[in-house]
Computed example of a mutant assay.
Amino acid sequence: MPATAEAVRAFRERLGLPGLVDVHTHFMPERVLAKVWDYFDAAGPLTGVAWPITYRHEEEQRLALLREFGVRAFTAMVYPHKPAMAAWLNSWAAGFAARTPDCLHTATFFPEEGVSAYVDRALDAGARVFKAHLQVGGYDPNDELLDPVWGMLTEAGTPIVIHCGSGPAPGKHTGPGPVARLLARHPRLPLIVAHMGMPEYDAFLDLADRYPEVRLDTTMAFTDFSERFSAFPPADVARLADLGDRILLGTDFPNIPYPYEHQLEALERLGLGDDWLRAVCHDNGARLFRLHS
């Protein structure tokens, strides 16, 4: 059953939130999104499980739903799976952000010739967040072609949502090792580890402990769907409280196999309290992206 705006509104009102800040939502060119949905429908090797898309709607309807849910800021997580694709995606995302003021202008990159130039153009155009997908892109974040990019993004203080955990299926360069090597060279890099680093939760929490600019997003973590194959260790729940100022709400909307409010319910049942929920679901993201009240 699709999420109801009433359920999400009740969650926000109980916490006294002016809205939600969702750092991990997907908007992309329609033909690209259609291929992504086809991949999920086929339970491709990077998913490996049945994955019904709950919000298989036209773009305007998806935007309307987020607004009904009270999401005051969200992203357009685009990502290339091959060379000569990222600059085109960035052009599309810039246009999408221009016509969608509640979307945080999102960009991406791939290890290829010219990557520094188009990342620089994206920053000049106002990109506020980047997406790096090591699983789908199949690349090492330590590729020498990306070294100038990491330096640029560090200097700009622009966050990068990075899918680097090995869930739902491992990739050649997923897992904590490549990211640990990256952070050793760029210790101030503002990474947002997607999916809490699923399933290597411990190791990515360790990286957040070590590097104060590392954050984690909640995308799909703690939900009934993910707990079946990548359960979060109960012993680490206290660590979530300790890092409460660096955990951000993410959902993977619209590509989720359950209603939107289930992510919120999954966070609430961790039992970390209302202040923690307020920080994760709104305040941390609002501070990071300098959203005005």
Rank of each mutant, 00 (worst) to 15 (best):
T154N: 09
G151L: 07
R121I: 00
A73Q: 01
L146I: 11
A132Y: 07
G95R: 13
A97Q: 02
V71M: 05
G126C: 03
R72S: 10
D124F: 02
K82E: 15
A73G: 02
G138N: 09
G95W: 08
V149P: 01
A125E: 12
T154H: 07
H105E: 09
A125N: 07
L89A: 03
G157S: 05
L104Y: 01
R128L: 14
A107G: 08
G157F: 03
G137F: 06
A117C: 00
V119D: 05
A132Q: 13
Y79D: 01
V115E: 10
P83S: 13
F74G: 00
T158S: 11
A84L: 10
T75S: 11
P111C: 06
P159M: 05
M85E: 09
N90P: 04
T108R: 03
A127P: 00
E113P: 00
D143A: 07
M85V: 02
A122F: 04
V149C: 03
G137H: 11
V119W: 01
P80S: 06
M152E: 12
L145Q: 12
K82W: 10
S116M: 08
R99M: 02
T106I: 08
D147Q: 15
P83T: 11
Y118C: 04
V129W: 05
L153E: 12
S116K: 07
G114Q: 11
F74K: 02
R72Q: 13
T100S: 14
A93F: 01
W88Y: 06
M85P: 00
D140H: 11
A98Q: 15
K82V: 12
Y139L: 01
A156G: 06
D120L: 09
I160R: 00
G151N: 15
T100D: 14
Y118H: 12
A122D: 01
D143L: 06
Y79P: 00
V149Y: 04
G126E: 01
G138R: 11
K131D: 14
G138I: 09
A156V: 04
A127L: 07
F74A: 04
Q135M: 15
A94S: 14
V115M: 10
A127E: 06
T154Q: 14
S116T: 15
V136Q: 03
P141I: 12
I160H: 01
P148K: 09
L134N: 08
S91C: 06
P159Y: 05
H81T: 14
V161C: 15
A84Y: 08
H81S: 15
D143M: 04
Q135S: 15
T100M: 08
N90Q: 02
P111A: 06
S116F: 03
T154F: 07
V71L: 04
S91K: 09
V71D: 03
I160P: 01
R128T: 04
K82R: 15
T75C: 07
A117L: 07
T100L: 05
Y118F: 13
N142S: 14
V161F: 09
L104A: 06
D124G: 10
L123N: 06
K131Y: 13
E112C: 05
G138Q: 11
L153Y: 10
P83G: 11
A117R: 09
G114Y: 11
T158F: 03
F74H: 11
G114R: 09
T108S: 04
P159Q: 05
